[in-house]
């Protein structure tokens, strides 16, 4: 997408090698390296989906394609594409945009997003979102105090906008609710 235009000059072989999404996998394998294994993994996922979809059958005469046609077509396309890319991972535009900061920060960002749905029922929207957004701000390079300020400002602003202006209820959190006979 955008990276190609902003950061030209990444060598054809350098990109996937340094910026592979699975560092540590196949790094010693010379050309292809990590990128190849990601495509192999995609092909395996497609095969598993195909295995599952094969069982979706009905005996209606009027429904010749049946419920499995769409998923099986999807699997065929994914399989063909990812096998081709696994065989020739480098025949594309230059580089896949190597991460300047390695894999740790994107993984942390993903983990922050993933934590939100599990924390929201207990901590409520305000605390969870405020904390997660402050964490993201820090990952984006803000110092601690600024990150906390940004996170809490975003959480409060969104809460006010949705709950009061738009009338969309947001979870308050079990921790902050007084126990009631009917359950929190």
């Amino acid at each position: 997408m955008r990276e190609g235009g902003v950061r030209p000059g990444v060598g054809k072989d350098g990109g996937a090698e340094r910026g592979g999404v699975h560092p540590g996998v196949g790094m010693g394998g010379g050309k292809g390296g990590a990128a190849r294994w990601v495509w192999v993994a995609a092909a395996v996922v497609a095969l598993a989906a195909g295995w599952e979809a094969w069982g979706y059958q009905v005996a209606f005469v009027t429904d010749a394609a049946g419920p499995r046609a769409l998923p099986l077509l999807a699997v065929a396309l994914m399989l063909a594409g990812s096998v081709a890319l696994a065989l020739r991972p480098h025949t594309g535009a230059p580089g896949s945009g190597p991460g300047e900061t390695g894999i740790v920060r994107p993984v942390l960002a993903g983990a922050l997003f993933l934590a939100i749905p599990f924390l929201i029922p207990w901590l409520g929207f305000m605390v969870t979102a405020g904390g997660a957004m402050a964490g993201l701000a820090m990952l984006l390079g803000a110092p601690l105090t600024r990150a906390l300020a940004a996170g809490s400002a975003i959480a409060v602003a969104l809460y006010l906008l949705f709950v009061y202006a738009l009338g969309v209820p947001l979870p308050v959190g079990a921790l902050f609710l007084a126990p009631t006979p009917g359950g929190g």
Binding site: E100, T101, R105, P106, A109, F113, L136, L139, G141
Partner: peptide, 8 residues
Amino acid sequence: VILAVERA
């Protein structure tokens, strides 16, 4: 957002 974090 994840890409932006990576690029930070």
